[in-house]
């Protein structure tokens, strides 16, 4: 296990290095080659204060992006936990009762909701809460000065909701697909002839052997969630990492763009490492 872990950590560091290189190339293409007033990557200044449009207090790019990342953590936590709970839970449940059409019925509401633009859903929720509950509307409209800041979690859940809908829809389909393929193998029928109940066959002969395949899906929707975070945070005016990324692009601050994109991609790389370790552990247990 230790040998495997060291090897994967080396791969992780290689990945992170490659991500940085790809990002530098992309920023040079976007801001350097194709832009009229060229900004080049060799002018990146992480410790210099960002423009007053981004931060009036004159924080450095690193501090500002790190603070924005902290604001996004509750949203990402809620979104990913929601996606995993619904995606795996309902996916397995749907496959268990697939003969009753449960797989389709459980997937349909998420599939339909995923067709609507996430930024539009966020605006609708904000409008509803503004008109019906009178507060809070958008994230930048209320500040809690005393007591526990529950508004942070409310704001995070508003932003997370469209991400959960889209992510769950994809994960549900992937989980169902893995389980349905396994269940369709003809020799599973022999267990019924041996007197096993459908529940035993499903959980022991279908779910158990594909545990590592299900674990492989752990980070499948993470890039989608992070991409969505950029849009819905901007729609909701929530000062998270996605909002910082878009604001950095609008203000032409390449250091903010690089740092926020790098941080987001690193999160993906770390989750990929967790997935690889989990799959390895499950495969070793099986063997």
């Amino acid at each position: 296990m230790m040998h495997f872990l060291i090897r994967r950590l080396l791969v992780l560091s290689l990945r992170i290095g490659s991500i940085a290189a790809v990002l530098l190339v992309l920023i040079e293409i976007g801001f350097g080659w194709l832009r009229e007033d060229s900004i080049h990557v060799w002018n990146l200044a992480f410790s210099a204060p960002v423009s007053p449009e981004l931060s009036p207090s004159g924080e450095s790019a690193v501090t500002w992006v790190w603070r924005a990342f902290g604001n996004s953590v509750p949203t990402l936590l809620i979104a990913m936990l929601g996606i995993w709970m619904i995606g795996y839970g309902w996916g397995i449940l749907g496959s268990r009762f697939r003969s009753l059409g449960a797989s389709f019925l459980l997937r349909a509401p998420f599939g339909i909701a995923a067709c609507f633009p996430g930024f539009w859903l966020v605006i609708l929720i904000s409008l509803y809460s503004y008109f019906v509950w009178e507060r809070p509307g958008f994230a930048d409209e209320i500040r809690v000065e005393q007591g526990p800041d529950l508004v942070v979690w409310w704001n995070a859940s508003v932003v997370a909701l469209p991400l959960i809908l889209v992510g769950s829809s994809r994960l549900l389909r992937a989980v169902s697909s893995v389980l349905t393929d396994r269940a369709a193998e003809t020799h599973r029928g022999a267990f019924f002839l041996l007197g096993a109940s459908s529940e035993e066959v499903f959980y022991q002969q279908v779910c158990r052997p594909v545990r590592h395949q299900l674990a492989e899906l752990l980070d499948r929707v993470f890039p989608l969630t992070l991409g969505g975070l950029v849009i819905v945070e901007t729609a909701f005016h929530q000062g998270g990492i996605g909002f910082a990324f878009v604001k950095g692009i609008r203000e032409g601050s390449t250091s903010v763009v690089f740092l926020s994109a790098f941080l987001i991609a690193c999160l993906g790389a770390i989750l990929a490492l967790v997935r690889e370790c989990l799959v390895y552990w499950l495969e070793r247990r099986e063997s």
């Binding site: 990945r15 490659s18 991500i19 790809v22 990002l23 992309l26 920023i27 293409i29 976007g30 801001f31 080659w33 194709l34 832009r35 009229e36 890039p223 989608l224 992070l226 991409g227 969505g228 950029v230 849009i231 990324f245 878009v246 692009i249 609008r250 032409g252 763009v257 994109a261 987001i264 991609a265 993906g268 790389a269 990929a272």
Partner: peptide, 21 residues
């Protein structure tokens, strides 16, 4: 392909399209 997925495609679009105008 797995490496490419680490960087969300939406961010690639934003950097190239937003940066260049």
């Amino acid at each position: 392909s797995r490496f490419l997925r680490l960087l969300p495609a939406m961010m690639v679009f934003c950097i190239v399209l937003g940066g260049s105008g």
